[in-house]
Amino acid sequence: MDVLTARDWPQFIALADELDGWAFRGQQVASWPLLSSLSRRLAQFCPDAAGWPERERRAMRIFRRKAHIYLEDRAALDEDLRCLAMMQHHGAPTRLLDFTKSPFVAAFFALERAVGDAAVYALNTPALWQATPRFDATLTRDRIDPRHPGHFERYFIDNQHPLLWFGEPSRMDRRLVAQSGLFVVPGQLQQPLAEILDHYASDAPLLKKIVLPAALRDQAMHALYRMNVTHATLFPDLDGLARSIAYELEVVWPGPPAHRAEAGAGEDGLSAA
């Protein structure tokens, strides 16, 4: 895996421009490996990996058995990837890794709560369309597609195959659309994504890591705010709006001139109606 460091925000933009068509994931801590929330949860609380497949199956069964209570249309529960996407959306640990087609969305997620060096990982999805794992060249992206009935059970849940699939569910929710999102589905929970990619044959690099030093956070967050990349736009609901207030606490915008304030300017600097 190639590791690059952006000295400032313009250099990050330049580095991202070279990766047209790739997918991106922001990580709050630069040293964190690319592991799913399910991988981290199981490794911490259920260290015997032999039991992980059945634990994952049970989690999905429980969610399906109960989630229909809150749904007008329960069709999403019938397709494995859509079910996992819904679980992920609402905070359950899953094997899905959130990626985005936008390097700026990834940078926002990397930096928004970062207190040290963060990172944006870039996945070479154009190369991976055709790449296959060295141990079995027949395991193409189409053959293992978890959107097809039975494929998630066959290729992923047993944690036997160091492979991955990337893409969107057959139907996307508002958040996934707003974030230009897609999922990476690893075939093994025990291995970080970089190690799984070592099993793939490709002449091109499949993964790059762009380190975002802590010193560029203020510059980058201000630029992202002006681009309208905020929690309020990435999570188009009341939860997203509420989360967006956190950044409003950090910045102090220039106030209105004294004569405007006396004329009844609102607290956001705009004239009161």
Rank of each mutant, 00 (worst) to 15 (best):
A258Y: 12
I62K: 14
D203S: 14
F108L: 04
D78V: 00
Q219S: 12
P254S: 08
F104W: 10
T230R: 14
P205M: 12
L97N: 11
H161I: 01
A16N: 11
L176M: 06
A92H: 10
V115K: 09
A127P: 15
L176C: 02
A23L: 04
A178M: 03
M87W: 05
G26N: 13
N124R: 12
L163K: 05
S37T: 08
E267P: 15
A16T: 11
P192R: 07
I62F: 09
Q190H: 09
L238N: 09
L77Y: 11
A215T: 14
R174Y: 04
T94G: 01
L238H: 05
I157L: 06
D8L: 00
M86T: 00
R25L: 03
E262S: 13
G187Y: 08
R7F: 04
I210V: 07
G91S: 04
N228P: 10
A246E: 15
A119H: 06
Y247M: 13
M1G: 13
F24K: 07
N124C: 08
F99T: 03
D145W: 10
V115W: 02
A23M: 08
A114G: 13
R58K: 14
E168Q: 10
D98G: 01
V115Y: 01
W165N: 11
P205C: 07
P10V: 05
D136Q: 13
Q188E: 08
Y155D: 02
R147I: 00
R40K: 12
L77K: 09
G240E: 09
Q11W: 14
N228E: 13
L38P: 03
E195S: 12
G150I: 05
W165R: 08
F183G: 04
